[in-house]
Design a protein around this nucleic acid. Structure first.
Lengths: 224, 224
DNA sequence: GGGCTTGTATCTGGATCCAATCTGTGGAAA
DNA sequence: TTTCCACAGATTGGATCCAGATACAAGCCC
């Protein structure tokens, strides 16, 4: 009907996955805010598909923690309060060190170089959006060696669910105290290079825990 | 087409949820084994519905870790190897203590009495299937006070994914060493009654960790 | 005879249409 | 004026039908 803007794009072959990818990106970037409703038909006609694959996509996103579904009432991006985000961060403090420990033995030299490359990009000074992306890439790269799908999926859910509030925090506070993140990342990276699991876990927990405490010190993030 | 056997049943109002509940029960009870495929049409006609709600149900179960979906290849119950189950147990060792700590402050006197009632049932001697159900109820009851959906959902996923291997273990080993479980449960329950979070966490971790080590000592569970 | 190709049956993915539920607005009665 | 109810538009859930992909088996070529 509308211009098939991406005629060339063969997609992944599955429409529902393309739709999920589109919505995922829009939610993570903040284009669709917490509390906002997602109507099936609107998405369907915007992407030139029927509502069926949209529903499948919404189920996928629900499993990723990016939307919540209520029977007969549709889908919306979850709006979390201060306490829920705090618990999600405490989950991160326990799960991500495990992912790191499981991953470490399988990280190659080139993996570590790639991680350091990401950190160098972060240190060159980037805006909030770019930082959020690079920070996520940094940590996910450190977990990439862990072979268990469920573990990676859990970590992804936690990052997804808290993404909006990380952004809100940085929008308000600016990039100030960025040096702390850099220091933490560098210490973590050094521990990985030394293959010191104990230190790596220590720095990672500290990194997440500090972020949690900073976030929960700013209640204005949770009341829009 | 076939006899509308449950014409009277209004269900929960949503067919996909009823279908999901049916499949969930059959998988958890071992009626559908790991590796087994689930065909949409077969389920649909057995429950007198079309394939659409079946697909929704499969997506729900996928989010719960009970099935895995592959594009154009359908759904099957995940078959895990020894290493995957070990990682899932290590996740349990980290996540469930958090759920317990978050839950404890909200557990009432009657909650604790109910938990003790479940433990008394376990101690009266039950078969494997009943034990699996009661053990799950016992622990879930201790987590019931934790108000965060994502935390409970994570715990549920971990129990779901490992359920089959717990059952396989008990089928082989018989109910021997049941006294250990009872002792651990009693110590945990006592710590909860004393409102001693530190002890509660200690006993819970020990309980899960011991189970993990017993399970991973029996590779025959994972090679059917 | 073995390996590759091809054809067909089976199954999943998606589109369209219909039914059931929710939401919001307007009006009537207290 | 406020509250409750009823009705209509909007939105989701489900059924049926069609298209595309996969899997398996028979047949062909080397």
């Amino acid at each position: 009907m509308d211009v098939m803007s991406s005629v060339v794009d063969p997609g992944t072959g599955a429409a529902s996955e393309r739709i999920a990818a589109d919505l995922r990106a829009r939610i993570l970037v903040g284009e669709i805010a917490p509390g906002e409703r997602i109507r099936q038909e609107e998405v369907a006609e915007r992407l030139g598909a029927s509502r069926i694959p949209v529903r499948e996509a919404l189920r996928m996103l629900s499993a990723e923690g990016l939307v919540e579904l209520e029977t007969n009432k549709g889908a919306r991006v979850p709006r979390l309060d201060e306490r829920e985000v705090e618990v999600l961060y405490r989950m991160r403090e326990r799960i991500e060190p495990l992912a790191l420990i499981q991953s470490m033995p399988h990280l190659s030299e080139s993996d570590l170089q790639r991680i350091e490359g990401i950190q160098e990009q972060i240190e060159q000074g980037v805006d909030v959006t770019a930082f959020l992306t690079l920070d996520r890439e940094f940590h996910m790269a450190t977990y990439a060696g862990c072979a268990t799908d469920q573990l990676l999926a859990s970590v992804t859910r936690l990052w997804n669910s808290t993404q909006h509030y990380r952004r809100a925090f940085m929008m308000i506070n600016g990039p100030g105290r960025q040096w702390i993140v850099n220091a933490e990342h560098r210490l973590l990276l050094d521990a990985l290079t030394r293959n010191d699991a104990e230190d790596a876990e220590r720095y990672l927990v500290g990194h997440i825990r500090r972020t949690r405490m900073e976030l929960t010190k700013h209640p204005e993030i949770f009341t829009p």
